[in-house]
Simulated scan of single mutants.
Amino acid sequence: MDGADRQADAAERRIVGLPLRAFAPNAVTALALCFGLTGVRFAIGEEWEKALAAIIFAGVLDGMDGRIARLLRAQSRFGAELDSLSDVIAFGVAPAMVMFLWSLQDAPKFGWTAALALAVCCALRLARFNSRMDADVQPHKAAGFLTGIPAPAGAGLAFVPVYLWLVTGETLFREWYVVMPWVLAIAMLMISAIPTYGWSSIRLRRSWRLFALAGVGLLGAALVTAPWHSLLAICVIYVALLPFGIASYARVRLRG
């Protein structure tokens, strides 16, 4: 093929545009962004359960888009940038607005500052992730661990006081002096350097696979029938696993 033919072929590909397989994961990311912002809309109307459900569903979509991209071999720099932008809005800005409207606006001082901390730390975490994307040495990633808690998990953990309020009806969990320290702690965990479990760091024994599949099915049923109890239990387990993640990473480093 001579130069003229190659130019004609390239021009034809530009006219045809992006294949559908490259469009699909970006569409899922855009949906996650929309659901995150829809959570803010529900929070403005004080529809708290719908607000939480919208942001949590955005987290489900966020977990799907990367896997769809890898499955279709449609990874791109554009998709990575769009995913980070979506994460900042859906798991940083939206939860910050929900927590401010739900509780932190009642603080005499620094309520908005605490909400901002959640959004800013989410953005800083994602900026750190993007800056290290092409780095040759990433000790946590090489061992299958994450650095700090990921943005979707941070959003879910930030809502723990809301889960408690929905489950118990106790107004104490809505008080700003309870919510503010918790939100600030989650913000700090997002930008921390502690190693946390990632999907690639979890290994299931062959004999446990059927039990794991049964557990996933039961978890899905629990999320449908008692969503706030189930999400609260997931958050408790996640926080309880943080020290084990640190210890596991230390053992991996020693073996390395």
Score class of each variant (00 low, 15 high):
residue 68 I to G: 03
residue 36 G to D: 07
residue 68 I to E: 04
residue 127 A to S: 13
residue 127 A to Y: 09
residue 124 L to F: 15
residue 92 G to I: 09
residue 124 L to I: 14
residue 106 D to T: 14
residue 85 L to Y: 11
residue 71 L to N: 04
residue 72 L to A: 15
residue 74 A to I: 10
residue 48 W to G: 02
residue 124 L to S: 10
residue 69 A to N: 03
residue 40 V to W: 05
residue 23 F to D: 00
residue 95 P to M: 10
residue 69 A to H: 02
residue 115 A to L: 04
residue 34 C to V: 14
residue 62 D to M: 10
residue 23 F to L: 15
residue 99 M to E: 05
residue 74 A to P: 11
residue 97 M to H: 01
residue 104 L to F: 08
residue 70 R to E: 09
residue 103 S to T: 09
residue 50 K to F: 06
residue 117 A to N: 02
residue 112 W to T: 00
residue 61 L to Q: 04
residue 96 A to C: 07
residue 42 F to D: 06
residue 39 G to Y: 10
residue 111 G to P: 07
residue 66 G to T: 07
residue 119 A to V: 08
residue 43 A to S: 14
residue 56 I to L: 14
residue 36 G to L: 09
residue 88 V to W: 01
residue 62 D to Y: 07
residue 121 C to Y: 09
residue 79 G to Y: 02
residue 115 A to Y: 04
residue 79 G to T: 08
residue 40 V to R: 00
residue 104 L to Y: 08
residue 47 E to P: 00
residue 103 S to G: 12
residue 107 A to N: 10
residue 77 R to Y: 01
residue 99 M to F: 06
residue 25 P to C: 08
residue 32 A to C: 13
residue 58 A to F: 01
residue 41 R to C: 02
residue 35 F to A: 06
residue 123 A to S: 14
residue 102 W to L: 11
residue 69 A to K: 02
residue 40 V to A: 10
residue 101 L to S: 08
residue 36 G to T: 10
residue 112 W to M: 12
residue 126 L to K: 04
residue 95 P to G: 06
residue 54 A to P: 01
residue 40 V to M: 14
residue 81 E to N: 13
residue 68 I to Y: 02
residue 57 F to H: 04
residue 42 F to R: 02
residue 43 A to H: 12
residue 83 D to T: 14
residue 50 K to P: 00
residue 56 I to Q: 01
residue 86 S to C: 15
residue 48 W to T: 03
residue 31 L to C: 15
residue 101 L to H: 13
residue 85 L to K: 08
residue 77 R to C: 00
residue 32 A to R: 08
residue 51 A to H: 11
residue 53 A to M: 11
residue 42 F to P: 00
residue 86 S to F: 04
residue 122 C to K: 06
residue 96 A to T: 06
residue 37 L to V: 15
residue 97 M to Q: 04
residue 52 L to F: 10
residue 117 A to F: 12
residue 63 G to N: 13
residue 84 S to G: 11
residue 93 V to Q: 00
residue 57 F to Q: 03
residue 103 S to W: 08
residue 98 V to N: 05
residue 99 M to P: 06
residue 99 M to G: 04
residue 61 L to E: 03
residue 112 W to D: 00
